[in-house]
Amino acid sequence: MRWTTYVSRTDQAEHAALLVDGELFGVDRPLIELLRSDLSLAAWGERAMTAPWERCSVEEAALVAPIPVPPSIRDFMAFENHVVTSYAALGTEVSPVWYDQPVFYFSNPAAVLGPQDVVTLAPGSERFDYELEIAAVIGRAGRDLHPDTAEDHIAGYLILCDWSARDLQSTEMRVGLGPAKGKDTATSLGPYLVTPDELEPFRAGRGFDLGMRATVNGREYSSGNWSDLYWSFGEMLAYASRGTELRPGDLIGSGTVGTGCILELGLTHGADRYPWLQPGDDVLIEVDQLGAVRTSVQDTPAADPIPLR
């Protein structure tokens, strides 16, 4: 199944909808409420098909992020190729800790954008970047999960683009904390939450044999494959749930696929070939079976950041 969230023209409210053959079969509540209910998504799908709250074409619908305000966002760094290449380009070595345990940071739920929303540059940033990722959406609560069974708690997967102000990020992380302001301006999600059964035929390695691509102004920048994960989503969920509870609607991001950001490409192949994003750039983030995020970058409303003191 493919689920999304859209703003209905009938009541101007957010509603979950099942996508079938280009048509949305809406239900009377947001998707996160479906995940929190006692019914399965399959049962909600049957209800949507037999007695939809409303029906409309997906091309005419105003799609927002499937989970517009997630309870939490944990973004991991689970692709070895990205980690090794980007660290080498920066002249540093990968910490052995990365091979011993998956690592993540908490991102900003208030900064979530939909699959076609315009992205605004982070105030004060001149090195703005995209990150080509996928994320798992938690469908069933759990804590202290085991890597072998943790994926049973996943309701589905979607595209995640973690927009990054690299100059702000590199400055603040010298203190030993973060990333913070380098990451919390925007995170694009969508367009669909795709249930695991849809992807099972593509299972390979520690993920799925599904291509991941990013283009800027129609030119291909990034190309990778989900199956290249070093840490599986089961392992990421198990680590994230240690001593705490994962809740329905929580997001677990994979981190950037190899070649999946300008930081990595520019430092490896040259900044002239892969310049940082500028106002007016059109960016396409695409993952096989999950759809695409299409957006443009605009300048920040304030020319200069507000002084800190």
Rank of each mutant, 00 (worst) to 15 (best):
A111V: 03
P179K: 11
A111E: 05
Q101I: 15
R140Q: 09
N108D: 02
E172H: 06
F208L: 06
E151S: 04
E172P: 05
A204S: 15
E133M: 04
S188Q: 12
R143A: 09
R143E: 14
H146N: 10
S188V: 06
P123I: 00
T149E: 15
L145I: 07
D167N: 10
D167H: 05
E172M: 02
A141C: 04
E133C: 04
A150M: 00
S107K: 15
E131C: 05
P179E: 11
A136S: 01
G139T: 07
A122P: 13
V194F: 08
P123K: 07
I138N: 10
G205P: 02
Y130L: 09
P196M: 10
Y99H: 10
V175D: 14
P102G: 14
E126L: 02
Y130N: 09
T185M: 14
L189C: 09
F208K: 04
S164E: 02
A204N: 11
T187I: 06
F128C: 12
P201M: 01
F104S: 08
R127S: 14
T120R: 13
V118Y: 05
V137A: 06
E126P: 00
R127M: 14
P102L: 14
S107A: 15
A186T: 04
F104V: 02
L121C: 07
W163M: 09
D162N: 06
P109R: 05
A204G: 10
V194E: 10
K181G: 01
V194T: 12
C161H: 10
L199A: 05
L210A: 12
F202N: 09
D167F: 08
E200N: 01
R140Y: 01
Y157N: 05
P191C: 08
Y99T: 04
